[in-house]
Nucleic acid binder design. Structure first.
Lengths: 335, 335
DNA sequence: ATGAAAGCGCTAACAT
DNA sequence: ATGTTAGCGCTTTCAT
C-alpha cells in the first residue's frame, strides 16, 4: 500500500504538494496537479485517514450510542444519522447499551480513545456521568430522545408530554373514563413526560381520581405483565395506554390471553409506531415520533457544533408528534 | 487532554514504560506499575487509539456494509456483529448502500482510508469489484448473505435453496399445484437460489409445467405489483411464494386489494420472518434465516482472520434455515 | 526491568 | 506555486 511519500517521489514533487492535491487546499498548478493525480491513480493510492487525523486532530467519525439498534425506532434514527454523516463524508460507529450504565461507560471510553469528533447519545440512565466524561475530553455530544438532568447539552427529542396528552384526550373523547398507562422505567424522561401528559388530560377532564399509572420497563414482557396486573386490579378499565410500541404489543397479548377483545372490550393506544411496511394492515393507534428526522437533525446539529459554526450555549430541539388513529380504539363500552 | 508523555514525565519514567503498563506488555515492576497507574487516573489519561493504530497498523475497527439497516433482517445481523465486536474490544462502522454500486464504492473507499481491520460485506451487486478493491488494499473481507461469483472469499450465508425447496414442498403437500414465486432481483444469489429450490420442489412433484417465476426487487412495491400481475395472468393460482418479507407483505396487500382472502383463496409463504415482538399474532408462514447468528459467526470469522489464526484458503459457512408454519397457508382450494 | 532512538503517514507553520 | 522542517502520540527495535 503506497503512501503519500511514494506518490511524491514518483511524481517528483514534495509530499506537501501531494497533500495539497488530495485535499484541494493551497495552490497547485494545473500541470503539477495532473501529474500527481496520474501517479495517485497509477499506484492506487488510498490516503490514510488515521495519519491525517493524528496530525489534524479530526477523525471525521461520529458515534451513535443507542440502547438497542434492534428497536425499529432506533433503527430509523440510526438511518437518519448515517445519511447525514455520509453526505458529509463522516463515518458512524454504532453501539448498543441495552440500558446498562456499565456498557455505556465502556463505550464512552472506547469512543474517547478513538477520538471520535462527536457523539450522539441516547442516555441509558438518568445521570449525566457519560456526558460529563465526554465534555472533559472535549468531545461534542448531542443527546437524543431523552432529557437528562444535571447538565446542559445540545439535545433533540420529541414532545412526549404533548403527544401523551393528545393520545389520552382522544380516549377521553371516545367516552373512556378508566384509562391505565403502562409506562417505561421511572427516572427516564420519556417515561415520565408521557405520564405527565396523561395526567394533564385526565385532570382537565375531571378524571383525576381514576388515574392509574404503572411503571415498568420499555419492553414487551413488562407490557404483558402490567396489563395483566392492571386488568386484575381494575376490571372496569376500558382503555390502556402503552408507554411504547413493545409495551403496547405486550399489553394486547395479555388482553387477548384474558379473552378480551381490542378494541371491543378494551381500547389500546401506544407511543411509537410499528414499522408500517411490515403490516398487512396497521392496527395500533399511536403517537408517532419522527425518529428518522430526529437522527438527521441531531447529526446536523452535531456536525455544526464540530465545525464550530454554532454560537456558545446549547440548542434544544423539540420535535412534534403525530397522532395516527387506527383500529385499536373504539368507544368506551362503559358508555 | 494529557498524552502518554505527560504521564511518563509526571511518573518519572520513560514513555515506553507507560505504554507497557497500559498494554500489559513486557516487564514492569509492581511499584512502577502502581505509580504509573496512579498518574493515569489522576490526570484522566485516555490512550489515543489513532496514534496507536498509526504505529501498530491495527485500528481495532470493523466495518459492516448492508443494503439498508432499516430492514429488520439486517438489523439483527448488525446486532450480532456488534455484540461480537464489543466482546473483543472492536468497534463497528456501519453503512447502507441501498443496493447501489456507486454507494458501495464510495464506502469502500472511505473505509479503506480509515484502515479498518476488516469488512463485513453484504454485496449490493453481483460483481466482485469491491471485494477485489479491499483485497488489493490488504483489508480482510467476509461476505454475508449473498454469494458472489468471480472471487473466492470467506463467506457466511443461509441455505436459501434448501429453505425454498422445503417451503415449496410444504405448499405442494397442502395440495397446491399452481404456485408462483415472486423473487428479488435477478443476478442476486439469494434470489436465484430461492428460485432454484422452488423449481426443484415443483420438478420432483412433476409440476414443472406450472412453474411461474417473477423476478423483481426485494421490496414491498415489487411484491405488490408482481402479485397483481401474477393473479391477472394466472387466475388459477392458489399460492404465492414471496422472495422475502417485504415482497410477501406487498403481495398480501395486493391480494386483499383484489378481494382475495389469505389463506382462504390464496396461500402465502415468505422468505425471512418479520420481527415477532411486533405482532399481536404472527401470521406469515416463513423460511426463517438466523440473521443474528449470521452476524455473530461472520464477525468471529473475520476477527480470526485478522488475528491470523486461520489457515490459508477460504471458509464457507452455510447456515440452516428454519421453516415456521403459521396461518397464511391452508389447503389448496383447487383441491 | 527499563530506556533511547526512530518512525508510522500525514499536515501546520513557516519559508522561498 | 512549491518546498522544508517539525511534530501529532504512540510503539517497534534495539540497547543496557
Amino acid at each position: 500500500m503506497p503512501n503519500l511519500i511514494d506518490i511524491a517521489r514518483q511524481a517528483g514533487v514534495a509530499p506537501i504538494t501531494v497533500s495539497r492535491v488530495i485535499n484541494n487546499s493551497g495552490y497547485v498548478s494545473q500541470p503539477t496537479r495532473e501529474r500527481v493525480e496520474a501517479v495517485v491513480k497509477e499506484l492506487g493510492y488510498v490516503p490514510n485517514t488515521i495519519a491525517r487525523g493524528l496530525r489534524s486532530k479530526r477523525t471525521h467519525t461520529l458515534a451513535l450510542i443507542v440502547t438497542d439498534i434492534t428497536n425499529p425506532y432506533f433503527t430509523s434514527m440510526a438511518r437518519g444519522v448515517e445519511d447525514v454523516a455520509e453526505a458529509n463524508d463522516y463515518t458512524v460507529i454504532y453501539s448498543n447499551t441495552d440500558e446498562s450504565e456499565t456498557k455505556e461507560k465502556k463505550y464512552a471510553n472506547m469512543l474517547a480513545q478513538r477520538r471520535v469528533d462527536g457523539v450522539l447519545l441516547v442516555p441509558s440512565c438518568g445521570n449525566a456521568n457519560t456526558i460529563k466524561f465526554f465534555e472533559a475530553n472535549h468531545i461534542n455530544v448531542v443527546v437524543l430522545d431523552r432529557r437528562i438532568s444535571g447538565v446542559e447539552t445540545d439535545i433533540v427529542y420529541s414532545d412526549s408530554k404533548n403527544g401523551a396528552y393528545r393520545l389520552t384526550k382522544l380516549l377521553i373523547g371516545l367516552g373512556h373514563k378508566r384509562i391505565a398507562i403502562i409506562a417505561g422505567s421511572q427516572g427516564v424522561s420519556t417515561s415520565e413526560d408521557r405520564v405527565l401528559g396523561y395526567q394533564q388530560a385526565l385532570s382537565e377532564a375531571g378524571l383525576d381520581d381514576t388515574e392509574l399509572v404503572y411503571y415498568g420497563a420499555f419492553n414487551e414482557q413488562s407490557g404483558y405483565q402490567l396489563a395483566n396486573q392492571a386488568m386484575t386490579q381494575n376490571p372496569k378499565l376500558t382503555a390502556i395506554f402503552g408507554g411504547n410500541n413493545f409495551v403496547a404489543v405486550g399489553a394486547i397479548k395479555a388482553l387477548h390471553n384474558l379473552g378480551l377483545d381490542v378494541p371491543g372490550d378494551v381500547s389500546v393506544v401506544s407511543f411509537d409506531d410499528l414499522p408500517e411496511f411490515m403490516f398487512m394492515k396497521p392496527f395500533l393507534t399511536v403517537a408517532r415520533q419522527h425518529a428518522y428526522e430526529m437522527g438527521q437533525m441531531a447529526a446536523e446539529l452535531l456536525l455544526k457544533r464540530i465545525s464550530g459554526e454554532l454560537p456558545q450555549g446549547h440548542r434544544e430541539l423539540i420535535l412534534p408528534i403525530e397522532i395516527i388513529v387506527r383500529e385499536s380504539v373504539g368507544p368506551s363500552k362503559a358508555g
